[in-house]
Design a protein around this nucleic acid. Structure first.
Length: 318
DNA sequence: TACGCGTGGAT
DNA sequence: TATCCAAGCGT
């Protein structure tokens, strides 16, 4: 959960998952759709699929206990170089280099590394491996990460109280804010599409479907949307709807993803009882449990201004 | 190696 | 408002 995600965002999800699936075996036996719904709002949904696959592997092939050693850990789904090293060092006392974004920043300043990231990663990993003590390597790893998170921060690092200020080469030159050097990132393209929110007469249930397992929002629930194409001028027409109905334009929903910005035209209609399309009806009370990703909650909110999503772990309803 | 992959808080 | 960035991974 903590991969590329802050502790504050993760905490309520983590507590809920531990409560709902307290052991590796229980998670391994979980309903995948329920796991995806429980992850909704946390982002990077491949992590949820990987975590479930990881639990199944640990349960089936390792008697429900995580294997010791970075190499065995590294073979598990969703556990890469950082996570395998963190588990090995913190849980199994293995003196391996644990390098996350915080440590990259600390070390790049400590040695004033001019090579841009991510090209500098191998060099940083070697330096951290040299620094890692054989005694309490897990505490060392967490101390380095916490140093980066609380003192050696991206903006305005607190060098005055930093235990590494004396040997820090960047600090000596007064250039700490210029590290780490990063490769330039490309501009975010704009994309456009349409979403179709169909309501059933009577109970106001909404027509939903599940997205393909791979790709954007893989395995997540949505009101039907078109493909998201390179931005064109003007609204996308109701002829793109998954079924015929009295579609009317309700507005637009915008959402920024990591690598593009999306604008969706939101169409609304009272639909036939049987749309003759892949999907299912979800009543307003059930919408929370369906676990819509954030962009889809925005879509529904545009179509139905009265709707309120409650179960966003740890956050007030919008 | 470079890119695809979410979301929300801080500045 | 715009930008950055967070306990990265898989392909």
């Amino acid at each position: 959960m903590l991969q590329q995600t802050t502790v504050a965002a993760v905490k309520p999800y983590f507590l809920h998952f531990l409560d709902r699936w307290p052991s590796v075996e229980q998670l391994a036996d979980a309903d995948p759709q329920e796991v995806m719904a429980a992850w909704a709002g946390l982002g990077y949904y491949a992590r949820a699929r990987n975590m479930l696959a990881c639990a199944r592997t640990v349960a089936a092939q390792h008697q429900g206990r995580f294997p010791e050693g970075v190499k065995a850990l590294r073979c598990l789904p969703g556990i890469g170089e950082y996570t395998s090293a963190a588990i090995a060092a913190i849980a199994f006392d293995e003196p391996v280099a644990v390098v996350d974004g915080n440590v990259e920043r600390v070390v790049s300043r400590l040695y004033a590394i001019e090579t841009p990231l991510p090209a500098a990663k191998p060099r940083i990993r070697d330096l951290v491996q040299e620094m890692t003590p054989s005694e309490r390597p897990g505490d060392f790893a967490q101390a380095m990460m916490d140093l980066g998170a609380t003192i050696c921060t991206p903006k305005r690092p607190a060098c005055a109280i930093c235990p590494l200020s004396a040997p820090c080469l960047a600090r000596a030159e007064g250039r700490q804010e210029f590290f780490p050097v990063k490769a330039p990132k490309r501009a975010k393209p704009q994309r456009r599409g349409a979403a179709f929110v169909a309501m059933r007469q009577g109970d106001g249930a909404i027509w939903l479907r599940r997205r393909p397992e791979s790709g954007m929002l893989g395995g997540m629930v949505e009101p039907p949307t078109t493909a998201w194409s390179v931005k064109a001028d003007g609204a996308i027409g109701a002829e793109s709807a998954p079924f015929a109905a009295g579609w009317e334009l309700a507005g637009t929903a915008s959402h920024g993803f990591t690598h593009f910005d999306l604008t969706l035209d939101v169409w609304r209609a009272v639909a036939p009882a049987d749309p003759q399309s892949d999907g299912w009806w979800a009543t307003p009370e059930r919408l929370d449990e369906e676990g819509l990703p954030t962009v889809m909650k925005k879509v529904v909110a545009v179509a139905l201004p009265g709707i309120i999503f409650r179960r966003r772990p740890g956050r007030a309803a919008p």
